[in-house]
């Protein structure tokens, strides 16, 4: 399968890329931004997308890599999944992201696909949005009016829709450090290489046997990733015991709006959310080995 013909530009700087986007928009071109291409190229080959112009961010220096900025990490938007999964800073301070990134697709796709690209793509079944939401990350976006930052809570707006507007580019994601917290990403699939049917990201802080704070993100339980607020509230201040965690996890489907599809109907997903939340939190606090 061959994509429709398009013009191609590979700018060397973010400013040049923004200029190309503005010029393409002014010329009436249907422009797409290419990151790792592991979602965009398949949909172009299927001709579900047929942009007349593609702007490739792959040759911009400085968008790839993880840097320590004190109480947070800055992850460049073009950092491949494989790097997120194996980076020592991420392993030390936000291992939840490493674990989730290691479940994306397969090794070849993880070599090529990017952290920022997957987040802007915002597939409801994608594995990075829920952990990033649970971690309370901040998205750094460059556009014609300069730079702005958007909280994760405001970033995901619907199916494949984020706060990144036409003519803008996501350049990086700032993730607070959760050094010393327990964490776990529990993903449910039935076959290899599959998108999450449901998955749960858990960040849990335990002090002297008490859960002092819990941040739970749900994958594929709505058109956007969700925080399981009722579970977080039920866990906070309670004991880090299997019974208390099971009772809290029973709230996992509250406020969700899961889709029904060939992998499972909405009621099945609601059940999964509770089971997987229990497993994720148990694993995060060290009471059970996660899947």
């Amino acid at each position: 399968m061959i994509p429709s013909a398009f013009d191609y530009a590979a700018p060397a700087t973010v400013e040049e890329a923004l200029g190309l986007l503005a010029a393409a928009d002014a010329a009436g071109d249907d422009v797409k931004v290419l990151a790792g291409g592991q979602s965009l190229l398949p949909v172009m080959k299927l001709r579900m997308a047929d942009p007349s112009m593609v702007v490739d961010l792959g040759r911009i220096a400085g968008l790839n890599g993880v840097t320590d900025s004190g109480d947070s990490l800055l992850i460049g938007a073009m950092t491949p999944h494989h790097v997120v999964a194996t980076d020592p800073l991420i392993a030390q301070h936000v291992p939840l992201l490493a674990q989730a990134a290691a479940t994306v697709a397969d090794p070849q796709v993880r070599h090529r696909g990017t952290f920022g690209g997957a987040l802007v793509h915002a597939d409801p079944a994608g594995d990075l949005p829920a952990p990033v939401l649970a971690a309370g990350a901040t998205f750094l976006i460059s556009g014609p009016g300069g730079q702005r930052s958007v909280d994760a809570a405001d970033f995901f707006q619907g199916y494949f829709t984020t706060a990144v507007e036409e003519g803008e580019i996501l350049t990086g994601i700032r993730v607070p450090k959760y050094t010393g917290w327990g964490s776990h990403y529990e993903k449910f699939t039935r076959v290899a290489q599959q998108w999450s049917i449901v998955a749960v990201a858990a960040l849990v802080r335990v002090e002297a046997g008490t859960i002092t704070e819990a941040r739970i993100g749900l994958t594929n339980m709505a058109s956007t990733p969700l925080r399981a607020a009722a579970v977080e509230a039920a866990l906070a201040g309670g004991p880090a015991t299997a019974d208390a965690i099971a009772a809290a996890a029973a709230h996992a489907a509250e406020g969700t709006d899961p889709a029904s599809d060939l992998n499972g109907d909405a009621a099945y997903r609601a059940h999964l959310a509770q089971v997987l939340t229990k497993r994720a939190v148990l694993a995060a606090v060290g009471l059970q080995a996660g899947a």
Binding site: Q38, D56, R112
Partner: peptide, 27 residues
């Protein structure tokens, strides 16, 4: 498969595996 699933087209790009059906020659 030509759809990024089967891996028959796997090659190395700068020493790491990629699916060459899901990459442009210009890249």
């Amino acid at each position: 498969c030509d759809t990024t699933n089967c891996g028959a087209c796997t090659v190395h790009l700068d020493g790491v595996s990629v699916k060459s059906c899901t990459m442009l020659a210009v890249q």
